[in-house]
Computed example of a mutant assay.
Amino acid sequence: MQKEKPAVLNFNKEVTGMIYGFVFRPDQPPERVSSQQVQETYQDIHHEQGFIWIHVNLNHAMSEKWLKKHFSVGDAFFEEIREGSRSTRIERLDDILLAVLNDVIFHPEGTSDETSTLWLSCHQQLVVTARHKPVRLIERLFKRLEHLNIGSPTELLVYLLEEQEALLEQIVRRANQYVDIIEERLLSHHVKKNRANLGRLRRMLLRFQRLLAPEPTALFRLFNRPPAWIAPDVVQDLRQFAEEFSVVLNDLIALTERIRLLQEEITSRQMEQSNRTLYVLTVITVLALPINIVAGFFGMNVGGIPLANNHHGFVLLVVIVAIFTLLAGWYAFKRRDDN
């Protein structure tokens, strides 16, 4: 997992927990600033066009106090971080947009996955993103920032949402390829291992669906009652995002159903193999039954054992055992054909 490459900070001056700070102005490339500069710019940005983006590390002890003191970031944002659900959603809190996004690293053959959560507070002229662990969504945004031509806080939000949609689409594509390989190996001798891999993959995809799929209720509330400062075309972009995400989710649901059917097929094959093994053992037991019975009778240490003085007694016993063994074998195979 690639890590974010934060700026080299002078900790004698930089004690705010800010990782990135950018000022966006019309027709100008984004300008990267320090925490002191971003505080000064925020005082004047209300009288100008443009907005500020601040990305902070929540592990830093001063980040929450610094944001509350110098910027219009209320307690609700940090309460949501501490107590709220980590599944993806976008909702309106008064005149602010609150978004929760997730980043995952998918290893089809791994036993675990890595996840990180990004919280976003979107004001009319201020965007605050916060995380505990590095988030690749922000890393990619930082690398492409100069070429994206982002002109408003909502455009930044829409970009991050589209990146998460692309992430889920990539996961579904890679999972499909992995399932294709297992499906091709279905007739091999590794059925048990394939079934275990499919079960683990299915649980992982269901977890990704819970984390990455946006909550529809909060999204529909936002569509019906967006903040006044959000342009209608931005609401339309969000609607388009929701439609595209629903297509990816349908693909994910279809994939999990395909995995379930493969698991049932593998289970059926295992049961058939077990039944065949049990049948072979049953036939062996039936074929050995006549000779065991005869050996038991003639092994008794009592008088009056037949054929004891007959020179052809052993041959007669072999013929008798062979006849009963053939009859038992015929009956066993006849029962198999009837089934």
Rank of each mutant, 00 (worst) to 15 (best):
residue 304 G to C: 02
residue 205 L to I: 03
residue 40 E to H: 12
residue 256 T to C: 06
residue 193 K to H: 15
residue 115 T to N: 06
residue 283 V to C: 08
residue 37 Q to N: 13
residue 1 M to Y: 10
residue 103 D to N: 10
residue 153 P to W: 00
residue 9 L to W: 03
residue 216 P to W: 09
residue 195 R to N: 13
residue 211 L to K: 02
residue 147 H to Y: 01
residue 107 H to A: 08
residue 273 Q to E: 11
residue 297 F to H: 10
residue 298 F to P: 05
residue 212 L to C: 07
residue 153 P to F: 00
residue 92 R to N: 12
residue 106 F to G: 00
residue 18 M to S: 09
residue 177 Q to C: 02
residue 153 P to K: 03
residue 192 K to R: 09
residue 324 F to M: 14
residue 54 I to G: 04
residue 48 E to A: 12
residue 74 G to K: 11
residue 206 L to F: 05
residue 262 L to T: 06
residue 287 L to S: 05
residue 316 L to D: 00
residue 98 L to S: 15
residue 320 I to H: 07
residue 148 L to S: 01
residue 66 W to T: 04
residue 292 N to W: 04
residue 290 P to I: 10
residue 339 N to G: 15
residue 15 V to L: 09
residue 311 H to I: 12
residue 146 E to N: 09
residue 213 A to E: 00
residue 320 I to V: 11
residue 42 Y to S: 11
residue 269 R to S: 14
residue 128 V to E: 03
residue 221 R to A: 13
residue 182 I to R: 13
residue 162 E to N: 15
residue 326 L to W: 10
residue 69 K to W: 06
residue 95 D to Q: 10
residue 239 R to V: 08
residue 132 H to K: 06
residue 59 N to E: 14
residue 169 E to D: 10
residue 166 A to W: 03
residue 226 P to G: 03
residue 53 W to D: 10
residue 298 F to S: 10
residue 75 D to F: 07
residue 285 T to D: 08
residue 79 E to G: 09
residue 38 V to G: 07
residue 324 F to Q: 09
residue 115 T to S: 11
residue 18 M to P: 06
residue 192 K to T: 11
residue 50 G to Q: 04
residue 23 V to I: 14
residue 276 R to P: 01
residue 308 A to T: 05
residue 44 D to G: 04
residue 249 L to S: 02
residue 257 E to K: 07
residue 334 K to C: 01
residue 267 T to P: 04
residue 330 W to E: 05
residue 186 L to N: 09
residue 46 H to L: 02
residue 269 R to N: 13
residue 123 H to R: 05
residue 197 N to E: 14
residue 174 R to W: 07
residue 208 F to H: 15
residue 11 F to A: 05
residue 325 T to K: 09
residue 6 P to F: 02
residue 202 R to Q: 06
residue 215 E to N: 15
residue 189 H to Q: 09
residue 331 Y to A: 14
residue 292 N to P: 04
residue 306 P to M: 01
residue 28 Q to A: 12
residue 22 F to Y: 14
residue 114 E to P: 00
residue 62 M to K: 06
residue 237 D to T: 04
residue 289 L to V: 03
residue 235 V to T: 15
residue 232 P to Q: 14
residue 262 L to R: 14
residue 106 F to V: 02
residue 318 V to T: 06
residue 239 R to I: 06
residue 116 S to F: 11
residue 205 L to M: 12
residue 27 D to S: 11
residue 243 E to D: 12
residue 160 L to S: 06
residue 144 R to C: 14
residue 325 T to Y: 13
residue 297 F to D: 11
residue 154 T to E: 08
residue 32 R to T: 05
residue 233 D to S: 11
residue 146 E to G: 07
